[in-house]
C-alpha cells in the first residue's frame, strides 16, 4: 500500500489539490503531477540547484523537500516570473548578459537570484553576488553573464543600497 496524502498548495498563485505519495519529491510533484516542468532536476542531492524554487518565499532545493511537505504552502517557480510574454527585469537581464546557454540550470538560477535580490541587504557587489550564485552549478556560461545580470538587477532594484 502506498502512503498517500491529499494536499493543497498554491503554485504561482494557482490553487492545486492533489493526492501525492509520501516519498515523491516536491520537484517531481511540481513537474510531473502539476506540469510545472520549468523546475529542472540536475542532481537530486542538493548540490546543483537546478530545482531551486521559492517555498513560502524561501529558496529551497525542490529535490530535498517532499511534495507532501508543501501542503498549505505557497510555491513560486520560474513559470511565475514573467508577465505573459513580458520577461521580468531579471529574466531580461539574463538574456542581455548572456547568462544562459543550454537553459537547463537557468530556472534554478533565476529563483536563487530572486531570493537573493529580495533580501534587504542584497548588494550589487560582484563578490557578494558571486558567493550567492555559487549555490548553483552551471556548466555552460562560466557564470560571468549570470553574475553580471544579477548585479544589474540589484543595482536597478536597490539603487540606494548598492555598494
Amino acid at each position: 500500500m502506498k502512503d498517500v496524502h491529499l494536499i493543497s498548495l498554491s503554485v504561482n498563485g494557482n490553487e492545486h489539490e492533489l493526492v501525492v505519495e509520501s516519498r515523491r519529491t516536491l520537484a517531481d510533484m511540481l513537474r510531473h503531477d502539476l506540469g510545472y516542468t520549468g523546475t529542472h532536476l540536475g542532481c537530486e542531492h542538493g548540490i546543483c540547484g537546478a530545482c531551486t524554487i521559492l517555498l513560502d518565499d524561501q529558496p529551497v532545493r525542490a529535490c530535498l523537500v517532499f511534495g507532501v511537505q508543501a501542503d498549505g504552502c505557497e510555491v513560486r517557480t520560474v513559470e511565475g516570473l514573467a508577465d505573459g510574454d513580458q520577461l521580468s527585469d531579471l529574466q531580461q537581464a539574463f538574456s542581455d548578459r548572456h547568462g544562459l546557454q543550454c537553459g537547463f540550470c537557468t530556472p534554478g538560477f533565476l529563483m536563487l537570484a530572486e531570493a537573493y535580490l529580495s533580501e534587504a541587504d542584497s548588494s550589487a557587489d560582484p563578490e557578494s553576488v558571486r558567493e550567492a550564485m555559487a549555490s548553483n552549478l552551471c556548466r555552460c556560461t562560466g557564470y560571468q553573464g549570470i553574475v553580471e545580470a544579477v548585479c544589474d538587477v540589484a543595482r536597478s532594484r536597490h539603487p540606494a543600497g548598492s555598494t
Binding site: 517557480t77 513559470e79 538574456s95
Partner: peptide, 17 residues
C-alpha cells in the same frame, strides 16, 4: 539577442523529461 532565451527564461523550454 538569442532567440532561444525567451522560452528558457520562462521555464517553457522542452527537455526530454
Amino acid at each position: 539577442p538569442r532567440k532561444e532565451d525567451g522560452r528558457m527564461l520562462r521555464g517553457s523550454g522542452r527537455f526530454v523529461d
